[in-house]
């Protein structure tokens, strides 16, 4: 029987890393433009973060500290699985603390804590083409980007308003990067869009199945598309986090019983824990604290 292989540091072979690295450099040089790359078959399913994993594997070094989140949480199963993958193939240090991480791989959220200079945020992207649901053909959407022809996107958003009275896009809300390319921010809630604007961190996007890499350098304009009379707005929650009392954060709705009982808690688990460690308590924690006193 064939000898099964031992794997290189961070799984990918060096030639593959070089190919991805070259794509990353071009992506940074053309903010928001999707660079085609020869995405490899990864030992995890397409659609489960193969693009993000390839980007992370190509940039990761032995001194990095890696954080992996899915839905804002470090302990969701796919985040656990990807983190374990890098521990296994790169023996890299991992953390759940946003501020301690040098590389953060994410699916669907941007951490609440402001990212800082030198950090890299790697997004897992399912469909990188913001125009894909308006025009399914790659040959057509490529032309639209080339000609900076984004009228279709505005028409779509405006039809939303005409039909619903609101722009009905709540996640994967399209943005314009550095005044040129319209970009899909990956399926993050639009709540997170403002965090991309002038971020101090480098933002890299990997779409494995669709074979695209794109980037937003630090200190770069990222503007959510909107209209003068219907300006872009983010979600607002009526109550603070039930555990840490935070306002102005994105909340998950947790169903408590079958009688309509529910609570809202931070989607960013690290942020929530950190606040609680610093003595903040929300409505659901406060009574317990009293009881202990």
């Amino acid at each position: 029987m064939t000898d099964l292989a031992t794997y290189n540091f961070a799984y990918l072979d060096e030639q593959t890393k070089r190919m991805i690295r070259r794509a990353i450099l071009k992506a940074i040089a053309i903010p928001g433009y999707q660079v085609p790359f020869a995405s490899r078959e990864m030992p995890m399913p397409y659609g489960w973060g193969t693009g993000g994993v390839q980007v992370t594997a190509a940039i990761l070094g032995p001194d990095d500290v890696l954080k992996v989140i899915d839905q804002g949480a470090d302990d969701t199963t796919n985040a656990v699985s990807i983190r374990a993958f890098f521990q296994k193939v790169a023996n890299v240090a991992v953390t759940t603390h946003t501020r301690d991480a040098t590389i953060i791989q994410t699916r669907h959220r941007i951490p609440e804590e402001k990212l800082t200079e030198g950090q890299v945020l790697v997004y897992q992207v399912p469909i990188p083409e913001p125009l894909r649901f308006l025009e399914p053909r790659e040959t057509e959407t490529r032309k639209m980007h080339a000609l900076e022809e984004y009228g279709l996107m505005h028409v779509k958003l405006y039809e939303d308003i005409a039909r619903n009275g609101h722009i009905a896009t709540t996640y994967a809300y399209p943005v314009k990067v550095a005044g040129r390319y319209v970009m899909d921010p990956s399926p993050t809630p639009k709540f997170d869009n403002p965090k991309m604007h002038m971020s101090e961190a480098l933002q890299l996007f990997g779409a494995g199945r669709e074979k695209r890499i794109y980037a937003v350098p630090p200190h770069t304009e990222v503007v959510s598309l909107d209209f003068e009379d219907y300006p872009f707005e983010i979600q607002k929650f009526e109550q603070p986090c039930a555990l840490c009392g935070a306002h102005d954060v994105y909340l998950d709705e947790v169903v408590l019983d079958d009688k309509g009982g529910r609570m809202f808690v931070c989607s960013d688990t690290d942020h929530c824990e950190d606040r609680r460690d610093h003595g903040h308590a929300g409505a659901m924690l406060a009574p317990k604290k009293e009881a202990a006193e």
């Binding site: 060096e14 890393k17 690295r21 940074i28 940039i59 990761l60």
Partner: peptide
């Protein structure tokens, strides 16, 4: 040490292009 040295030069290049 090709694996680690190329990674460290690349990270400088990546940060350099980003800034």
């Amino acid at each position: 040490q090709p694996v680690f040295e190329s990674q460290s030069v690349f990270r400088m290049l990546m940060d350099g292009m980003a800034k």
